[in-house]
Design a protein around this nucleic acid. Sequence first.
DNA 1: GGTGGGGCTGTGAACGCTAACAGTGAGCCG
DNA 2: CGGCTCACTGTTAGCGTTCACAGCCCCACC
Lengths: 345, 345
Amino acid sequence: MAEGTGEGGDHRAARPVMADVARLAGVSHQTVSRVVNEHPYVREQTREAVLAAMAELGYRPNLTARALARRQSDTIGVIAFDTTLHGPASTLFSLEQAARTAGYEVHVVTVPDPEPQAFADAVERLVAQSVCGVVVLAPQQAAVQVMVGLPTDLPAVAVEGGAAPGVPSVVVDQVEGARQATRHLVELGHREVAHVRGPQDWIEAEARVDGWRRALADAGLAVRDPLPGDWSARSGYAAGQALRRDHPEVTGVFVANDHMALGLLRALAEAGVDVPGQVSVVGFDDIAEAEYLHPPLTTVHQDFAEVGRRCVDVLLARMAGGTAPGPVVVPTRLVVRTSTGPARG
Amino acid sequence: MAEGTGEGGDHRAARPVMADVARLAGVSHQTVSRVVNEHPYVREQTREAVLAAMAELGYRPNLTARALARRQSDTIGVIAFDTTLHGPASTLFSLEQAARTAGYEVHVVTVPDPEPQAFADAVERLVAQSVCGVVVLAPQQAAVQVMVGLPTDLPAVAVEGGAAPGVPSVVVDQVEGARQATRHLVELGHREVAHVRGPQDWIEAEARVDGWRRALADAGLAVRDPLPGDWSARSGYAAGQALRRDHPEVTGVFVANDHMALGLLRALAEAGVDVPGQVSVVGFDDIAEAEYLHPPLTTVHQDFAEVGRRCVDVLLARMAGGTAPGPVVVPTRLVVRTSTGPARG
DNA sequence: GGTGGGGCTGTGAACGCTAACAGTGAGCCG
DNA sequence: CGGCTCACTGTTAGCGTTCACAGCCCCACC
């Protein structure tokens, strides 16, 4: 009876649903569901009939209906701040790929201002979408408060930010990276090593300051106040000018990211300062352009692709009921190019 | 019979649903729905009672259920290629903000390889999510084929790519931008103007080649073969070396993006070529760092934020049933800095 | 040859919402 | 004063899945 009825209209532009497949295969919709979800207890012969029917109709399950019935979608929510920045953009990119490979969709919500309220709204929106987990890709202090306020039954993972109690995290080892960079300068003989830091409420900026301080302390060197910066080349340029004007004794600079280093390099060049002859410069990030700056920039490489992948790993483990392991730490790697050289004297 | 049963447990950690609000407010769930959706024909007094009940329970509508009932979610799907690149990242960022302001969520699917099949899969996944519209943010030729194969009832808009028949598009005026850049060089007296192009199958790369050609033709100058590039600083560096080696007569170079220009600048510096003294260089994109390159780069500014916003505008108009207007063209703006100067002679 | 238990399948009822339709009063007109 | 409209509200039936619960059949077992 399946042949003539039902589709009588002949104008089937609409997507076929489970019931259509069931009718064609001569089984119940539930059996189709079982085949789709790879439940055991489906006879091989039946399975093939259903598969054939699905193929013939071009059936694709309606994920919305599935999400409603399951009360959960196979979607990972991501709360991010500025996805234009190198780190977040790269992380997000690899995270999305890893998530898809694991069978999940990714839903990104960007937060224009790093205010707790804005983050809370973002969480609400993701929850309303029935996401099965959340990745908070917001590197500010403000984001940490949100993590603790997260629904406890919602698996979450913090990235590139501070770890909230009970929330697993994936981070690049900022402190160690900053130490590597600073130690490199110290080992080249630099005694006056300045730092151009990132914005105040960024956790990573703080960690890099910390690593720089520790490396100097380890070497018994004086720690000066870091110069302010906001990640932009412009602020690095300003820092470079300030450095020449106010701290001519400095021969080594650890800059908290490559873009600022780029600006600083420019300011030094304008001031007629030779790099690395008079001043050595180390950056952080290892952006693709670092190798082609003037001079090629010594910097600390961050493996954002790895961060994105580990994120998904951790979240999936959490969703499977695993307890939060200690923070997953992705190591950094110092890439020595020619913006650093031995201190004169 | 509804009062005693059901919630007896007292342990309501679960999210309240429409029926809970209805019960508390003493109305039917449908009235709650009307209030949520701002239908007319709800008495002000009733409205307030419902609103109060919603606030008390902390009710938030389940978007999945809504999507299922409406057979459409308030979600815009975005198919993108490499969201790490400056253009796509910036566009995506502003697009997301604009979409949220308009009450829409954004669902991004990145496509690792620019193959038609991969694009088609991405479309399938978005359709399975019942997205209400699709933005194709893929600048390759391969993406165009996908546009034509899109379900006709699914509003779509192409960005930064080629326009498929019937699909509205938002584009930056690449040809005009390239002309501005090239004309600028010509007006400075350069007669031998080279071009470092972007990858072969990128529509924008082709358009920039085109603009460069036209400007040269307009000026009655010879058109040489463009040098190959892949957007990366590395390829720009290689192009710079090739230029010195094979085309020493060239005094003006229009490079298809700023990152390649950065590499090219580096190659010229290494070869002892003064910019702009001996060679003038113009880039494209106006990345934040352009102003701080060595020397500050003359380039063509693209307003990606505007592109993202217009995208949402066009898609919303399309969803409202509007016909596709001609392509929305966002103008470029030449930003003259110091990497360009008068030709000697 | 009843009985029990797997393998396999079907039936209803959710999931939380919207759409369509059917009321219900009040006000107005002829 | 019957009937009409208009403002407002409730009832019912989906949307396309999954879940819980039966069933059925067949084979092994006593």
